[in-house]
Design a protein around this nucleic acid. Structure first.
Lengths: 157, 157
DNA sequence: CTGGTTGCAAAACCTTTGCAAAGTC
DNA sequence: GACTTTGCAAAGGTTTTGCAACCAG
């Protein structure tokens, strides 16, 4: 599966006259093998197994190039480093601010908001770039049950 | 601007047995005067006028303390530094990734998504921390118009 | 007085950049 | 061979931390 996906990616770049360098091949391979997202640091470590010479700076520069080419995207899950994934892997992230758990959310849930923002403000929402923060089911239960009155906070002070 | 708002904030902290240090007073004053968000750096600069001794490290530590006390919040409006505001200052922002323009959005537009995430995942979305990135009307028009037609060619995979 | 806070400096952290060497087509 | 990309090192920007002096209550 990932083999064909990779070949398709390589062909796509080649057909656009883009160079297929070692770093690009290695990064795309690592990203295709990863089922979820990877930080630049994690990618550097994984790539280093096969190609020890590839430098962190190259990781960043190559990821940026691949982003410009529309092949790779990155998102911010909160504090900490950005995470990268192939652009065809479309999903949203729900990040719990209490326990850090990351849930993947279906894009369809966001279309209503996207349409509303487009209609109201002409704003084209790039909703996947930043994660949606909040509290996961478990932490929300703890918060509403115990000391901090999270529910009150929603109505403001 | 609102003297009363500040006094109420100070009283709130005092009544909880929290110390009212110079740094906290200065930061709360600066945040109350600011109509919108401030980065830690901007706050450091503004506070420095009245209290030149206050150090950047203190800015960060104090903001974190005030956050834990429920008085201050921060969010990430894009790449770059976080922005801080008083916790009772509730607003949604649409941030254009191309020109950096910030548009305020009606909170009611988000309730649909909030309900959907709660129902689907039990996830309590912190909509106040939800900086929506994308493209404003003007930049969206330019992008679809022609200049960056290359971006459209990302029919990846 | 006493414990929480601050100032300072230094580091941690993630990411970017200048330049020469290397690689790709 | 021409041009892009990489490796290296060093810096960039933001935020955190150890420790001693300091201050509010």
């Amino acid at each position: 599966m990932s083999e064909e996906r990779l070949v398709a990616l390589f062909d796509s770049l080649r057909s656009r006259g883009e160079r297929l360098t070692t770093a690009r091949r290695a990064l795309l391979t690592a990203l295709a093998q990863a089922d979820d997202h990877r930080t630049a640091d994690e990618l550097a470590a994984e790539v280093k197994d096969a190609y020890p010479a590839i430098h962190r700076a190259t990781i960043y520069r190559t990821l940026e190039t691949l982003r410009r080419l529309g092949v790779v995207e990155h998102s911010h899950l909160g504090h900490g480093p950005a995470v990268y994934h192939l652009a065809d892997d479309v999903h949203h992230h729900l990040v719990c601010e209490d326990c850090g758990a990351v849930t993947e959310a279906a894009p369809s849930l966001f279309t209503g908001l996207e349409n509303a923002l487009r209609q109201e403000y002409g704003f084209e929402m790039e909703s996947r770039h930043f994660a949606v923060t909040g509290r996961c089911r478990a932490c929300a239960a703890v918060a509403s049950g115990g000391a901090s009155a999270a529910v009150e906070g929603l109505s403001g002070a």
